[in-house]
C-alpha cells in the first residue's frame, strides 16, 4: 500500500478534494489539465492558510485509508480542520476563497451579509464546480452552442465523473 504521507502534495490535495466535493479526481485534475486549477488552488491555500491547511493535509494523510475520512474531516472536533475542509470545498465549488475563520464566525453568528470571500481568479469563477454539478454553465460564460437550452444537458456523470 502506498504511504499516503509520501504522496506528491498535489496528488494528495486532489485526492482529498475529490472526497470533499464528490467530483472525480480525474475531473478535478485531468491528465491534460488546461487550466491548472488544482495546482492554483493548492498554491492559494498554502499561501493563505499555511499552517491550518498543512494541518488538514496531515490529518487526511493519516486517515486517508479510512472509508469515512470525509466525515472525519468535515465533522472533526478540531474546528481548524473542519473549517479548513469547508474552505477547500467552497474553493472548488465557487472558485472563491472563504477564510476558515470567517466561516466559523458566520457559523457561530449567522448574520448578513455572510462570510467574507474573495474570487480567486477570473478562470476560477468559470471553473467553479457549482455550475457543472448543476449541469449548467456560469453566468456570463458558456462554451455551449446557441440554442443549447432546447436540449437536455449531458448526464451529471459526464460533468463530475462520479
Amino acid at each position: 500500500m502506498t504511504d499516503p504521507v509520501a504522496q506528491d502534495p498535489l496528488d494528495q490535495f486532489v485526492a482529498l478534494s475529490a472526497i470533499l466535493t464528490g467530483v472525480a479526481a480525474d475531473k478535478l485534475h485531468p491528465t491534460l489539465d488546461t487550466y491548472g486549477t488544482a495546482r492554483e488552488y493548492l498554491a492559494y491555500a498554502t499561501a493563505n492558510a499555511g499552517a491550518q491547511f498543512a494541518g488538514l493535509m496531515r490529518f487526511y494523510a493519516a486517515n486517508s485509508s479510512n472509508p469515512d475520512v470525509g466525515s472525519l474531516v468535515f465533522n472533526n472536533t478540531d474546528p481548524a480542520i473542519a473549517y479548513m475542509a469547508k474552505t477547500v470545498m467552497l474553493m472548488w465549488y465557487l472558485g472563491a476563497w472563504y477564510p476558515p475563520d470567517g466561516l466559523q464566525k458566520y457559523h457561530d453568528n449567522p448574520q448578513p451579509p455572510g462570510p467574507p470571500f474573495l474570487v480567486i481568479s477570473a478562470d476560477a469563477y468559470t471553473q467553479g464546480w457549482a455550475w457543472r454539478v448543476g449541469q449548467t454553465h456560469p453566468m456570463g460564460y458558456s462554451d455551449w452552442r446557441f440554442g443549447y437550452w432546447h436540449s437536455a444537458p449531458p448526464p451529471l456523470s459526464a460533468f463530475i465523473g462520479a
Partner: peptide
C-alpha cells in the same frame, strides 16, 4: 460537456489580429 474540446492554451492571440482582445479574461 465542452464542445470546444478543452483547448490548450486556454487563451491565444496574435498581436496583429487580436490586438485589442489579448489577455486572460474568460
Amino acid at each position: 460537456t465542452d464542445p470546444n474540446g478543452a483547448p490548450f492554451p486556454v487563451y491565444a492571440a496574435n498581436a496583429t489580429m487580436e490586438t485589442y482582445v489579448q489577455g486572460n479574461v474568460p
